[in-house]
Amino acid sequence: MATIVIICGIYCLAFAVFHLWFWRLFSWKTELLKLSFPNRAIMQILNTRLIYVFLLFALLCFCFPQELCTTPMGHLLLGGMSVFWMGRTIEQFVFLRRNHPYIHLLTLVFAAGAVLFLIPVLC
């Protein structure tokens, strides 16, 4: 199971890198100017905090895979991340109701994250 937790860490690291690219991928330099000042700030603050959370969880997965697999606190953290990714999957259907291949792909990736983080908790 420690190998699955390491994979969870890679998954989180990949999402941290993905979120680092948001400014360029989504043309935030120009697109966020369309928002009010507070909304523009909130978008960027939320994104940088997500990057921090993903990096923290990656670090936890890389440094403490055995503890995450075998302790109640580890199970709580892994289960919490599973719920995070399941919630993110559900939010795809609430906020991104579009028929687009990238949206469908991301939905599958988010659902996979929910399953991936749940496996060590159940086994």
Rank of each mutant, 00 (worst) to 15 (best):
L59E: 06
H75W: 12
V53D: 08
L106C: 06
L35A: 13
V17N: 11
F64L: 07
R40A: 00
G113Q: 01
F37D: 10
A111C: 13
A111L: 14
V83Y: 06
F54A: 08
M1N: 06
L116W: 03
L116F: 06
P120N: 00
L32A: 11
I90R: 01
G87S: 06
R88C: 04
F57P: 01
F95V: 11
F22I: 04
A14P: 03
Y11M: 10
F54N: 13
I119Y: 04
V109T: 07
F62P: 07
M81W: 04
I6R: 12
P120T: 03
P38K: 09
Q92G: 09
V17H: 12
R97T: 02
G9M: 06
R97F: 05
K29H: 15
W28H: 10
R49Y: 14
L78N: 01
T107M: 14
L122C: 09
E31K: 15
L116I: 01
P120V: 04
C12I: 06
F117W: 02
L56R: 08
I10D: 08
I45S: 08
P101H: 10
A111Q: 04
F22Y: 15
K29Q: 14
H19D: 11
T71I: 00
V115R: 01
T71R: 01
F84W: 12
I90V: 15
C8T: 03
H100M: 07
G113E: 03
P65C: 11
F93W: 13
I45G: 05
R88I: 01
Y52L: 15
L96V: 10
L105N: 04
R98S: 13
Q44N: 15
V17T: 14
F84G: 07
L60T: 02
L78V: 04
T107A: 15
F26W: 12
M1Y: 02
T48G: 02
I6C: 05
R40Y: 00
A41N: 08
I90P: 01
P101N: 07
F84A: 11
L106Q: 12
L59A: 15
F18C: 10
Y52P: 01
A111N: 02
A14S: 13
G79I: 05
F37P: 02
R24C: 07
K34N: 10
A114L: 03
E67M: 08
P120G: 05
Q44C: 11
P120F: 03
P72T: 11
A16D: 07
S82K: 01
C61N: 03
T30G: 14
C63G: 03
V115E: 02
L122M: 13
A58Y: 00
A114Y: 09
L25M: 09
L108I: 05
N39W: 13
L46Y: 08
I7N: 07
H104S: 08
L68A: 05
G113N: 00
K34Y: 13
G9A: 08
Y102T: 14
F93Y: 15
L68V: 10
F15N: 02
E31R: 15
A114K: 06
L46F: 08
V109I: 13
G74E: 05
R98I: 09
G113L: 00
T89F: 11
